[in-house]
């Protein structure tokens, strides 16, 4: 079965097992390796991407669910790394090993799209599914607020 999906604005036609998780279609078939595998069970958020603007965990989303829809990955978040979140992430030195950060950014971007002035509680809720073993959480909160122009009291 062939699946048609727009990935980062580019129309793609994929001839793969429709049950293949979107994660592996992106990484292994399309070569978009910015989306990461961390658990395969929707427990860590490393694979977070947008499906029609909503966050999904690509590791548990069969590619057939993306048929006829629009997927955005970290590679498509901005043309040049200039999304306010990406800029804030670099300026505040958020990443440590960096492995979880594309997932964190995709979830944060979906949050800002819905709620341009988030509170700490909003951030904690939206990023609850994203683990960071390196422990960058306090900088993530600060960077989301910086990107949103919300003053950080700490």
């Amino acid at each position: 079965m062939s699946i048609r999906v727009r990935v980062n604005g580019v129309e793609q036609e994929l001839d793969v097992d429709p049950e293949m998780p979107l994660l592996w279609a992106l990484r292994d078939v399309l070569g978009l390796t910015g989306t990461k595998y961390g658990c395969g069970q929707a427990l860590c958020g490393a694979c977070s991407v947008h499906l029609d603007g909503q966050v999904v965990r690509a590791c548990v989303t069969p590619i057939r669910r993306a048929d006829g829809r629009e997927v955005t990955t970290i590679e498509g978040l901005s043309p040049d790394g200039g999304h306010p979140l990406q800029r804030a992430w670099v300026e505040l030195g958020v990443p440590q090993c960096g492995f979880c950060q594309s997932g964190q950014l995709m979830c944060a971007a979906a949050l800002l799209a819905k709620k341009p002035q988030p509170t700490d509680a909003d951030i904690d809720q939206s990023l609850a599914g994203n683990l960071c073993r390196c422990g960058t959480y306090t900088r993530i909160r600060a960077a989301v607020k910086k990107a949103a122009g919300v003053p950080d009291s700490k």
Binding site: T33, G34, T73, E75, V90, P95, G98, Q101, S102, L105
Partner: peptide
């Protein structure tokens, strides 16, 4: 400055599973 910061936030940083060779199996 964080040397690899821009690569990390754009998904371009190359980790272990991101290198591909022709004819490779997983």
């Amino acid at each position: 400055p964080l040397l690899d910061g821009p690569a990390y936030v754009t998904g371009k940083a190359v980790f272990g599973a991101d290198v591909k060779l022709p004819g490779m199996l997983i």
